[in-house]
Design a protein around this nucleic acid. Structure first.
Length: 211
DNA sequence: CTCCCGATAT
DNA sequence: ATATCAGGAG
């Protein structure tokens, strides 16, 4: 099967299962989404939600977060791991949002990735889900694993995988694809014990076909 | 490439 | 008990 034919089939199948995939993260505005995604680095979304449930009662905008003492912030986010780094990044990030963006969230990957603690994955995810802007594809561990198992990419770095996916997939589907692949990776194409028997993509999956 | 960290699956 | 999960910065 030709590569673009394969991509079309995969998209078609995923659309059947995940017509409107949304993030598992809880948030009520773009700022909270940014905070939640920063906290989600190397951490499950469920755990982030446990933490933000408390955190977002106190923090609704960058200024709120700046006003929380560093030690208190560290304690609040501790269960998400890397809590010292994340607390420091979050503080610095909010100071920049306050100083340079009038407490708003910038709407481009360019600007977002310059914020402390924000890489391509976080930027693409915030942009796509808070503003509906398809400027990149959030390649997290799930998107990476699915891309490799399906044989959509042979690259190892998220940056290269993102570029390859961006070539293959229509731009208006970038955010949708990322969200769908993340859901599929969590529930079906899991890192350990993937549920191939429940997967609609096995006909197009190198991993399944070669095992 | 290494460091940053807690929680859960095995 | 220990391997595995899960991104960004220096």
């Amino acid at each position: 099967m030709k590569p673009d034919e394969k991509v079309s089939k995969i998209i078609e199948k995923l659309k059947g299962v995940y017509p409107e995939p949304k993030l598992a993260l809880h948030y009520s505005n773009p700022f909270q989404l940014l905070v939640a995604v920063i906290l989600s680095a190397q951490c499950t979304d469920e755990r982030v939600n446990q933490v933000t449930r408390e955190l977002f009662r106190k923090v609704k905008n960058p200024q709120d977060l700046i006003n929380i003492p560093l030690e208190e912030l560290e304690e609040l986010i501790k269960p998400t791991g890397y809590y010292r780094q994340k607390a420091k990044n979050l503080k610095a990030c909010c100071e920049r949002l306050a100083e340079e963006y009038g407490n708003a969230i910038p709407k481009s990957i360019e600007h977002l990735t310059k914020l402390p603690g924000v890489g391509r994955k976080t930027a693409a995810m915030v942009l796509g889900n808070a503003f509906g802007v398809n400027e990149g594809i959030a390649v997290d561990t799930h998107v990476k694993r699915l891309s490799q198992r399906l044989g959509l990419s042979t690259s190892k770095t998220p940056e290269k995988i993102e570029k390859e996916l961006m070539q293959m997939v229509p731009q208006d589907l970038w955010t949708w694809l990322s969200n769908a692949m993340i859901l599929h990776g969590r529930h079906i194409c899991r890192a350990r014990n993937p549920r191939c028997s429940q997967c609609p993509l096995t006909d197009y999956c190198d991993y399944f076909l070669n095992k």
